[in-house]
Amino acid sequence: MKFPEGTDTSLERVWQLEPAGADAPGVVYAGTQPGALFRSEDGGETFAFVRSLWDHPQRPEWGEGFGGQAVHTVITDPRDPRSLMVAVSSGGVYRSADGGESWAPSNSGLRADFLPDQYPEFGQCVHKIARDPVDLDRLYLQNHGGVYRSDDGGAHWAEISEGLPADFGFAVAVHPRRSGVAYVFPATDGSDRYPPGYRCRVFRTEDAGATWEERCAGLPGEPHYGVVLRDALRTDDADPAGVYFGNRNGEVYASADEGESWRQIARHLPDVLCVRAAVIG
């Protein structure tokens, strides 16, 4: 995987490796830093540069988040392998309906509180997006300021932060089968990237963000400073679903009961950047 000649760009990091759906076997997308998209059709053996996103006229205006300038999220659609969504820090959400041949910004309703125009066409610092497993037009988004939901495939976004102790954070994850169930791990704000009140807490909604419930049974009760990064909160596909998160303190916590209770399963690791889990037997 490398940037082609003429781009004068070197690959710095791979922020996302996303297998497409079952209807597109062998297809894998990679989101990178600097912000670009690559596509594999042979199960990740080789990757092709998605030139159309790189050549998008807005790309030169994309900014750089605290963690770098990257395409860090790739969302595929089980109904249509040609439907794609990416999130860029800080460029916002872009969608393609033609398999990545063309792209359009899709940030209606998303705030960019660090810009003079707080609702620009693009330039938002989106941190993570997750798709509802049942209502496939419903998506959840953790923004740099605000948790949002879309009910129309990402065309419009509405804030659902009310009930959370803070609207900042990095990660959002969904239940593998139950519609309306999502998880976030808030942080105080962009300049105070610790858990609010220094309390280690996961928040879960079971009604698509209308209400949020604190879920901290089994999590540390003492002051805690470990923030959870954008790809470090995930579910598995077990029944009941397992939920996992790792933090920058090098701790990993797991819930075997869909987030009701937690158990520390690893500690003293290097700071955790991402977690992924799947049932394999």
Partner: peptide
């Protein structure tokens, strides 16, 4: 090596695990 991304592919007969490492 910093591992910013991991993909687990469960589409085949056996899962594949891909680390994106730097």
């Amino acid at each position: 090596q910093a591992v910013y991304s991991v993909g687990i592919d469960t589409r085949g007969d056996r899962p594949d695990c891909w680390p994106g490492r730097t």
